[in-house]
């Protein structure tokens, strides 16, 4: 049985538009200007138990709305879904015992209390006995390296520390499925890496399935075997991450700064120069043809390097490429 099966999920919101000022408010009261927003437009997919599945798309693509339907908080406008065999919006409470959720932008830990207090509270809410709660907290505290943070009021933790506590809290009741909505949002590179490592470890240790949404392709690349890309409420791509990498994440962008001025005719073999500044250059290259280390070596040969940044094409660029392919097969 798949952990998640979604068929033609749709969600339409009706929002009220209101003109500015008191007059606008009054008019909206008697003649509301209703606007229909199609957040999710027919999404179908399956996820196996214990799978690490990535759900990516730009802001406003419908990722969170989909997750909220799958946890049963939102009723879909149309379509069907089962999560661990339950229809989420009809059996929200039964499902809640078996899934864990983290919404990266919203804290679930009590802000003014130390995390351990929320851990105990959640233990009670999930109807665990005291001994189980204590053991589970000790285990998670070690796995997430948060032993030293548990007694500190949550408001005093850094975002990265808090996020580790948030995810640990969502695993307290041994869920079979973890739904993580933007768990790495706002984190620095090191904190992101730490979160990714821990999620992977928990997946290996306990076989908990993870559905992860992100607008950062890096999260998915580092964690998931399979990825679904959604845009404007629809699935535009669904395949293995390795295939995505092979096909779309092939080019990289390099920005370099030199200690001296850059000649106007600056060239590096195997790369395409995008922009030449006074001291800096921006280049693009294809990793299938030119390996990263070769590019770096050539850039270093060309002069006295001060700074190098390598980045992946943005998700928006990847989606644009996918669209272009679909438009002209």
């Amino acid at each position: 049985m798949p952990a998640i099966r979604a068929e033609g999920l749709r969600k339409t919101f009706v929002t009220r538009r209101k003109a500015a000022g008191l007059r606008g408010s009054l008019r909206a009261l008697f003649h509301p200007d209703r606007q229909t927003v199609e957040a999710v437009r027919g999404i179908s997919f399956e996820m196996e138990e214990g799978e690490l599945l990535g759900f990516i798309g730009p802001n406003g693509a419908g990722k969170s709305t989909t997750i909220k339907m799958l946890t049963g908080i939102l009723y879909p406008t149309a379509g069907q879904a089962t999560v661990l065999g339950f229809v989420p919006w009809e059996q929200r409470q039964q499902l809640a015992y078996r899934i864990g959720t983290v919404f990266g932008q919203r804290p679930q830990l009590w802000y003014h209390l130390p995390a351990i207090d929320t851990f105990y509270l959640f233990g009670k809410i999930y109807e665990l006995d005291d001994r189980t709660i204590r053991r589970r907290i000790a285990f998670l505290a070690e796995a997430f390296e948060i032993e030293h943070l548990l007694e500190t009021p949550v408001r005093k933790l850094s975002l990265g520390q808090r996020m580790r506590c948030e995810i640990a809290a969502s695993l307290l009741h041994h869920p079979r499925l973890l739904l993580l909505d933007e768990p790495s949002i706002g984190l620095d590179v090191v904190a992101k890496q730490r979160i990714r490592d821990t999620i992977r470890r928990m997946n290996e240790l306990e076989g908990v399935g993870v559905l992860l949404t992100s607008h950062d392709a890096g999260d998915i690349e580092a964690l998931c075997r399979r990825v679904i890309i959604i845009n404007h409420g629809q699935i535009v791509y669904q395949d293995k991450v390795s295939a995505l990498k092979r096909r779309y994440l092939t080019s990289k962008l390099v920005e370099v700064r030199y200690a001296h001025q850059v000649p106007r005719d600056f060239r590096v073999e195997g790369t395409q120069v995008l922009k030449i500044g006074r001291y800096g250059v921006k280049l693009r290259f294809d990793t299938r043809q030119t390996p990263v280390e070769a590019v770096i070596a050539r850039l270093a040969e060309a002069g006295n390097l001060v700074d190098v940044t390598i980045s992946d094409p943005s998700l928006e660029e990847v989606i644009r490429t996918i669209y272009q392919e679909q438009a002209e097969p």
């Binding site: 908080i73 929200r92 409470q93 039964q94 809640a96 932008q105 919203r106 959640f122």
Partner: peptide
């Protein structure tokens, strides 16, 4: 308004 209702509704109580 701020969306934290999502957490309040998806716990078993």
């Amino acid at each position: 308004r701020d969306g934290s209702i999502a957490y309040l509704l998806n716990k078993p109580y």
